[in-house]
Design a protein around this nucleic acid. Structure first.
Lengths: 333, 333
DNA sequence: TTGAAAGCGCTAACAC
DNA sequence: GTGTTAGCGCTTTCAA
């Protein structure tokens, strides 16, 4: 790759003049400017960003660290992050933490070594010491999906999402609804809150726990759990099911159908995340949408503002989820 | 961030000595080595990779450019690429080309400016001039999903995949099978070849074309196309359907069910890509699996070998797909 | 075993 | 307007 020095030599000017032309500084004669540009074209000159970074102490590079790139939820966010960053003249370095804290710690180090200007991270455990240390180190960070004091963050309230599901069920006249998922999931808490607001109480017998966390492979597990749940009952007394994500809802729907139950007539089903699966299922699935595009776009926007000194204080953005009503829920007759 | 200069000052040695210690070079007294290491720890020294890159003309950075990060097929590859690269001490810069040639050209430039050591690219159009130019520029490239002379590549033979589907249908006694997808798709060509090997000829009336290419949103389109196809027939004379990907198969299955056709009893269905959807559908979907993990791992392996001079010639790797047989296909009675 | 110094490609302050 | 120069943080050669 050509350097400014080479251009300078060819054009018979100093390297500083080449720099001035490249960077569009004023105070260069039209003649020399033309001459330099000509050689820039001829030699297909590309500025060396590494040298620029070193000199300017600014890399125009941001890092993003998430547990699992292949998770559709994250890959959608990454996609938007990259697009937004590119628009603002930044490149993005990506890394999987693989749900492993040591790996997470290592990639953080690695990115710092690369002189990234800022970091987007969906931490495995926001209380890890290597996460908290970032505050002291004065690294610009926007946290995804979680919040911790001392950081900016962009997240979606799962609690509110769960709350909305409860309201929806209530609007439709449902009173006895099962939850499939983890007891500590905020969306479950929001769901219970929503029920109680309407004078209902969640029956703990209707909590169908699944062990593994969110991964794509849990649909079968959900199938089995719900299957057992149904078989254990002499009589089905629930009229609705709220599943912790779309895939779980998918598994649940299969279990229901296999047990001769019609959706939504016998049992209504609601999912979470509103992945593309939701609109492809039969019946189509009512689900809570998380605005992944917004998460990606906003997190970059905030990060760049911090980097560029346009934002000093930390910002905690909590985006609203939206309930997308489809065929899998209907008014109770 | 601390620099070698600072460490040197604290430890009372020269900066060159610090460098020697950091890089584990011999010829430093044990006393100074200890002293330096102590300050390295105290100041939490991290080498500045930007400065190293500039000096060494080696960035330990590779780029990956694909059309759409959020496409599960690509995000799986990216995940494996990042993991493999990380294991070998490389970081990865990612970019969406968004199916836009100009964007692709820009991000290639941008990555070259960053002094990446090598590039992984799933090109929009391998015949674009900016792609071909990479050969002249002596950039190390491994092409994904396609091959072009002058480059190394890792891909999966869709032709063979289609061929296998034909064989499978043949084994099950099917003779009249529809294809949903694009006429020029290699998997369709392989499919026809497989049929003809068994003395069958594909009936062009059974080609159900869909315009848009592969995106996640095409399932409805497929639904409509197949629906029209079925409605236009007085009598269904096909016994099987081969869809260009799992999502298309999904749409097809919905259309079949809505038209009162049973899968696989009335019509068998085969998909492509073996995404997680395949095993979640009811009935579970027979599909052609592409080894995304292998693609990611191998492409990095080849790229790094080229970068490190361990491989001189270009390498074209064509991985085999595998037919995963599930419930959506059965022997014709 | 150690330090001084050159230089990677660039920006910018300073001189003329 | 233009060139010279210092210096970003590092590696490596050369001398001592």
């Amino acid at each position: 790759m050509a350097t400014m020095e080479e251009i300078a030599e060819k054009a018979g000017v100093s390297q500083a003049t080449v720099s001035r032309v490249i960077n569009g500084h004023s105070g260069v004669s039209e003649r020399k400017r033309k001459l330099v540009m000509e050689w820039v074209r001829k030699l297909d000159y590309q500025p060396n960003r590494t040298a620029q970074s070193l000199k300017n102490k600014k890399s125009y590079l941001i890092g993003i660290i998430i547990p699992e790139i292949s998770n559709p939820y994250f890959s959608e966010i990454i996609e938007k992050v990259e697009i937004e960053a590119k628009n603002q003249g930044y490149n993005v370095i990506i890394a999987n933490s693989n749900g492993n804290k040591q790996t997470e710690k290592n990639v953080i180090s690695s990115m710092q070594s690369r002189q990234i200007d800022g970091l987007l991270i969906a931490p495995i455990d926001k209380d890890s010491s290597h996460i908290k240390n970032l505050i002291k180190k004065n690294v610009f960070v926007v946290m995804l999906t979680q919040h911790l004091n001392g950081f900016s963050s962009v997240s979606v309230s799962h609690f509110n999402g769960g709350f909305k599901v409860a309201e929806h069920f209530n609007d439709l006249g449902h009173q006895s609804i099962a939850f499939i998922g983890n007891e500590n999931d905020p969306k479950f808490k929001g769901f219970k809150k929503g029920l109680s607001k309407n004078g209902l109480k969640f029956d703990n017998n209707n909590l169908i726990e699944v062990k593994s966390w969110g991964g794509q492979m849990s649909s079968h597990e959900v199938y089995n759990s719900l299957n057992n749940f149904i078989k254990s009952k002499s009589r089905i007394d629930i009229t609705g099911i709220f599943a912790y994500n779309d895939l779980a809802a998918f598994g649940a729907m299969n279990a229901l159908v296999d047990n001769g139950l019609k959706i939504p007539n016998d049992i209504a089903v609601v999912g979470f995340d509103n992945t593309f699966i939701a609109q492809e299922l039969r019946p189509t699935l009512t689900s809570v949408a998380q605005p992944t595009g917004e998460i990606g776009r906003l997190s970059v926007e905030i990060l760049l503002k911090k980097i560029e000194g346009k934002l000093v204080e930390d910002k905690e953005v909590i985006l609203e989820s939206r309930l997308i009503v489809r065929e899998s829920t209907r008014k109770l007759e």
